[in-house]
Design a protein around this nucleic acid. Structure first.
Lengths: 140, 140
DNA sequence: CGGTATCCATTTGGATACTG
DNA sequence: CAGTATCCAAATGGATACCG
């Protein structure tokens, strides 16, 4: 796709970026990586509980993709009941930095974005005394 | 929607992160922000040409979302032919850092990911990615 | 426990046509 | 030039059922 080379940014870089965004941009990847980054090694249902909202199917798919990309290792312990542990590879751990960067941004500016949306949508969120709930509630 | 509080990461932070990821995770946002970050102010078709692959519809939607989120300003010059210029707001410029972080990661590790995929898919050369095949040794 | 398989509603996004 | 409107195919992803 996109056979036309454009000036400014190199085509291959552009492709790589798009590719990476397709991976980390999907609904659950960043959460999974974030959890594994914080907690080290985690079991399947442990991850599922900690993310809370992810379906079994999506968690499985997300983990498979991460494994395929060399970002996560999957270790099966042949026990009864079965145990499967996931952890970040060295490559996966390098993702911590950019993800932390995103995380920090969302903490610092998420509220501003919510406010901007309120303004754009035509309602004046700011000085509203009746329902002072922000879009998601700040850290409290 | 997710009433169950989970340990580890605060719920509100999680929500904000998800929210932000939904914005920057879509197909074109990062490209648009990257272009505006590099080039300053750009016109609609200038952006369209530089991204090359984006449809008019998607570029419009992406820019509208960015404008709604307070990340991009849209300036209409009432001329014939019409001219509309886009640029990042101050808030939008704060996105440069996390996006650069992602960009750097994809430049540094994109190849490793491609290689890992090749290995996972059962071949050494990441030439063409077809439907995800089951790799030998997984089961049966 | 840790999955897989299937079904199906919703979302996404390209193509195309039309407008001021 | 810079959109808007409509249509429709493909991808996404939750729900459910079943399996080793």
């Amino acid at each position: 796709m996109t056979p036309t080379p454009q000036p400014g940014i190199e085509h291959s870089t552009c492709m790589a970026m798009t590719d990476i965004l397709n991976r980390i941009g999907d609904k659950w990847t960043v959460m999974v990586v974030g959890m594994l980054s914080r907690n080290g090694t985690m079991r399947f249902n442990e991850l599922k509980r900690s993310i809370s909202g992810v379906s079994q199917r999506m968690l499985t798919l997300t983990l498979r993709n991460l494994e395929r990309d060399g970002l996560v290792t999957r270790t099966i312990f042949p026990e009864i009941p079965p145990r499967v542990e996931y952890s970040l590879t060295e490559l996966g751990r390098t993702l911590k930095k950019p993800i932390d960067s995103l995380w920090a941004w969302s903490e610092q500016h998420g509220e501003a974005v919510g406010k901007a949306r309120g303004v754009y949508d035509g309602r004046q969120v700011p000085a509203r005394a009746e329902a002072p709930r922000r879009y998601a509630g700040a850290a409290g």
